[in-house]
Design a protein around this nucleic acid. Structure first.
Length: 569
RNA sequence: CGGGGCGUAGCGCAGCUGGUAGCGCGCAGCGUUCGGGACGCUGAGGUCGGAGGUUCAAGUCCUCUCGCCCCGACCA
């Protein structure tokens, strides 16, 4: 390809709306262009890189036994009503009405469609296991698209769905997919971390995410410094250390004027915040809920949502708190009636707590569960934080940001049951198919690679993703013998099957070098009057500082050999 | 949905107390340059996001509206 012909232009400055590195570099390199919030065009260079990623994913899916198919974007809304996910997806589901006033959804994912499809074609255990996948555009009306390609409303995604006769089969498919994912990331030179993830209200036991740790990531990842535990902060557990074990003193009311926050109360009484109880109030699917947790901990709303099995969860307003007969700042589980109380199990990790007395200006001292109050549900609803204690080895947990570049779920039979996707086993008994689902967002992967691999000059593509492998960079084109030689080399390199970007512009060396660096093409070949004189060309890897001279004779064959060698690494 | 910010040429920006729009990059032409974003000259390019209002006069003031970005909420 001739640089002068490429659609798309490199920019010296990035548009102001591009905030994070990958967004800026991809726009500056002329690889993507924004159309609307969370909607992007891929320009020829970006599209080439994306297709390379796509082919690597396809290759690994095929190797794992997947069969590729293509599913509709337009999906009957009834499918979503049948699975009940019209509610759980809520407003994220794009819908439209056709001319016959029939409602259709724009597929945000394809479990419904594929379960419906599979139920029509699979009747026997002999048809299973089955791995089906698709690589195509999906749409979600995200509340807030952000970070360039990191969170968008229209995105290309690979989703594979597994269908097995039982949980053991699902486990095997799941393992297979995790292996395939690891291969993909390895091929893309991405250090992806497999972490435990929350599977949401629907979904089975296990779910894992693959994360690239980087500051621009939008997820929080909790890791043990010993490397034996990593989880999404939504899911992460930790050991709640026991604080004290004093003998139980009698409950006592004390005056605590003007102490509304935990810190104020703890300071006023002279105890650590871990010896207080914090009350937080939520509305869960329309029901007021009293949430109780040790004063030094925070509520993890994802865990709480799962514990309550609710779809909508929000903090209660002050008016709602008052309406429930509670006094904000001095609320208490002691003596309240008619309100559901959910407690974190940390309330048993210490004794003699300070807790509100449910009247302004007063707290109780020496409150103990279950002596002084009851709860309706006690489970783990606490947020793990940096510095907490690892649940595996009691090491120290740390917190980082990460980009989610893959998410796998053990779905179970939830969806297959709703779609009648069942089979006859060898005993002639009908059983629901056990499903799994495995997704990778391609655009996000592209962005993650850039986040992970760039310098102040631009992108540094891994060879297998780079839109072109070689940047042929002739200098002093207009008036020197360089031009005909460069032209000849361009032809020869192409004949060798090498993907060459030929900078045929009559621009100054600085312009060309900077564009070469910005675009991140792995190998730059610079032909100048100087190198021509010695019948050589300068070869420089994007990843290296130093260049080396190659002789012009047999250049194409030599470059081809080196590239093959590199790709095999 | 709550909070904050921004919409002026393809991109980055300036434009005060209102007087009818400018700079840099990029783009086109010509010439000089040619190993890390060279230089000179000439030139093209603008419904100032949109609608309404105030005014003799609005990029500028007022109202409404649309879009975009960031933080939060949300997020298979």
């Amino acid at each position: 390809m001739r640089f002068s012909k490429i659609f798309g232009k490199t920019l010296r400055e990035a548009p102001t709306e591009a905030e994070n590195t990958s967004h800026q570099l991809l726009v500056r390199a002329g690889m993507i262009a924004q159309e609307a919030a969370g909607v992007y065009s891929y320009l020829p260079l970006g599209w080439r890189a994306l297709k390379k990623i796509e082919n690597i994913i396809r290759d690994e899916m095929d190797k794992a036994g997947g069969q590729e198919l293509m599913l509709p974007v337009l999906q009957p809304f009834e499918l979503w009503q049948r699975s009940g996910r019209d509610v759980s997806f809520g407003k994220s589901l794009f819908t439209l009405t056709d001319r016959k006033e029939h409602t259709l959804a724009l597929g945000p994912t394809h479990e419904e469609v594929i379960a419906d499809l599979v139920h029509r074609y699979v009747q026997s255990y002999r048809d299973l296991p089955l791995l089906l996948y698709q690589i195509q555009t999906k749409l979600r009306d995200e509340p807030r698209p952000r970070g360039g390609l990191l969170r968008v409303r229209e995105f290309i995604m690979k989703d594979l769905y597994s269908f097995d006769v039982n949980v053991a089969g699902l486990d095997e498919s799941y393992r297979k997919m995790c292996r395939a994912y690891k291969n993909i990331y390895a091929r893309l030179s991405l250090p992806a971390l497999m972490i435990e993830a929350d599977s949401g209200a629907i979904g089975g036991k296990d779910s894992h995410e693959f994360m690239i740790l980087t500051e621009d990531g939008e997820d929080e990842v909790i890791c043990c410094s010993n490397g034996d535990y990593a989880a999404n902060a939504e899911k992460a557990q930790f050991v709640k250390t026991r604080i004290n074990a004093e003998s139980l003193l009698p409950l006592e009311e004390i005056a605590t004027p003007t102490t509304k926050t935990i810190e104020e109360v703890a300071g006023f009484v002279g105890v650590p915040s871990s010896q207080t109880l914090k009350a937080v109030f939520y509305f869960s699917d329309g029901e007021f809920v009293f949430v109780l947790i040790r004063g030094d901990l925070e509520v993890n709303e994802t865990k709480l949502r799962n514990a309550l099995k609710c779809s909508e969860l929000r903090l209660a307003t002050e008016a709602e708190v008052n309406g429930a007969g509670l006094v904000a700042g001095f609320a208490s589980p002691i003596g309240i009636k008619g309100v559901r109380v959910v407690a974190d199990d940390s309330i048993t990790s210490a004794s003699s707590f300070i807790v509100g007395a449910n009247k302004p200006g007063y707290h109780f001292k020496n409150a103990n569960y279950p002596r002084d109050f009851q709860v309706h549900l006690m489970t783990d609803i606490a947020l793990a934080r940096a510095g907490d204690c690892c649940p595996k080895c009691r090491g120290k947990l740390s917190s980082s940001r990460g980009i989610e570049v893959g998410h796998v779920f053990k779905l179970g039979t939830f969806i297959s049951e709703r779609f009648g996707a069942s089979f006859l086993d060898s005993d002639g008994k009908s059983r629901p198919i056990v499903m799994g689902s495995y997704g990778i967002g391609l655009g996000r992967l592209l962005a993650a690679i850039v986040e992970q691999s760039h310098d102040d000059k631009g992108i540094i593509w891994p060879l297998c993703v780079a839109p072109y492998q070689v940047y042929l960079c002739p200098l002093s084109l207009a008036k020197s013998a360089v031009a005909p030689t460069a032209e000849k080399l361009y032809q020869e390199l192409q004949k060798e099957g090498i993907e060459v970007l030929f900078d045929d512009r009559d621009d100054s060396p600085g312009v060309k070098f900077n564009d070469a660096d910005l675009l991140g093409i792995p190998l730059r070949l610079t032909l100048s009057p100087r190198t021509l004189q010695s019948q050589s060309i300068e070869a420089k890897w994007r990843t290296e500082k130093e260049a080396q001279l190659l002789t012009l004779q047999n250049l194409a064959a030599e470059v081809s050999r080196v590239l093959r060698e590199k790709l095999a690494e």
